[in-house]
């Protein structure tokens, strides 16, 4: 495991503090307090969506820092691609973030993180509808790459928050299908036609009417980007992307947002990934128990219930922050436009 080394006295100091009433933690937080979380979206200009997040950052750095970027790539269905598009999540850890782990250990660690993230985010129930381009021909591959720049605890929550922020920020370019039509004289000419061959994005191209033909084009062969400058529309279903809370367990208590030292002193943790949609009950999108030890099912039930409460709070404040970021960036873009006019 990725924990740092800690003496027995330090471990017992942390554990006794957590078990006392009320729980006392090394930096004076209560058991449900997070450190302050800094978040910024749109940090990578070449990505379709990006975000960076840091938990517990002080004015000269430190804290858990994670950078996430989503990049879209065109795939042909049948070669690698899947009809309707797919999502690939990759986590890579900087060796500087884990100086005490060997390069093999680091590979294992980033594989663990990648698989948890990938299995949760690429699940069908979360799949965005507008990743297809041409049915059975072309689709988008969404690469979500996350880099762990430094780790001072609670890395999984940071990964999921960064992933959610980057996917929230992701814009899918608008496409228009092209087909070849044979003229009556016999020579073939390329024409662009209006109706989109994609499955989910009917609402985008009302501005390019396709004459009288309102049927879906089945024989489209390729696509083009109607507007190079337009970033496109947001990824479908961006409200659904889950957030994760890590419950660190020192039975009978649990706490959130562990620092590295606390993680080393509490081997058992429960990851819960929830997605919340308005007016529907929350879904558990992922669940992991990491570390040695065991949990009784009845205890687990209580933990899930508590976890949902924390996740909902995390979710709503993350959403508020993401909306703030959208506003800030719009404002910035407008200012820049004003300046250059």
């Amino acid at each position: 495991m990725a924990s740092i080394s800690l003496s027995k006295a330090e471990k017992s100091y942390i554990q006794t503090g957590l078990l006392s009433n009320p729980p006392l933690r090394a930096d004076g937080r209560s058991s449900l307090d997070f450190r302050s979380v800094a978040l910024e979206t749109g940090v990578a200009p070449l990505a379709n969506g990006s975000a960076r997040i840091s938990i517990g950052r002080t004015s000269n750095g430190g804290g858990t820092e994670v950078l996430a970027a989503a990049k879209l790539e065109v795939e042909s269905v049948g070669e690698d691609g899947v009809d309707g598009g797919r999502i690939m999540c990759t986590v890579s850890c900087s060796p500087a973030a884990y100086p005490h782990i060997s390069s093999n250990g680091l590979d294992d660690l980033q594989h663990d993180m990648s698989s948890i993230l990938h299995q949760t985010l690429s699940h069908l129930s979360l799949h965005p509808k507008n990743l297809g381009i041409l049915p059975n021909k072309k689709s988008w591959l969404l690469n979500l790459d996350i880099a762990v720049l430094s780790d001072s605890g609670n890395i999984y929550d940071a990964l999921f928050m960064a992933a959610r922020a980057a996917l929230w920020d992701t814009k899918v370019p608008r496409t228009r299908s092209i087909e070849y039509k044979v003229k009556k004289t016999g020579s073939s000419v390329t024409t662009g036609t209006g109706k989109n061959g994609g499955s989910g994005d009917m609402d985008v191209d009302e501005d390019t009417p396709s004459g009288f033909d309102t049927r879906q084009i089945q024989n489209a062969t390729d696509f083009e980007l109607p507007d190079y400058w337009d970033e496109g529309e947001v990824l479908d279903g961006r409200d659904k992307w889950p957030v994760c809370v890590t419950l660190n367990l020192v039975p009978p208590v649990h706490y959130l947002d562990a620092t590295l030292q606390e993680e080393a002193a509490t081997p058992l943790k429960l990851l819960l990934a929830f997605s919340f949609l308005p007016s529907t009950p929350p879904d558990i999108q992922g669940m992991r128990i990491i570390g040695p030890g065991e949990i009784k099912p009845s205890y687990l039930k209580d933990l899930v219930k508590d976890g949902e409460k924390y996740a909902r709070e995390l979710f709503s404040s993350l959403n508020a922050k993401l909306k703030d970021e959208d506003l800030r960036r719009n404002q910035k873009a407008r200012d820049r436009f004003e300046q250059h006019r």
Binding site: L32, D33, V37, L39, Y310, E313, L314, S317
Partner: peptide, 9 residues
């Protein structure tokens, strides 16, 4: 419980 801040300019 959790509060988000921005990165400094």
């Amino acid at each position: 419980m959790i509060s988000f801040t921005s990165y400094p300019l």
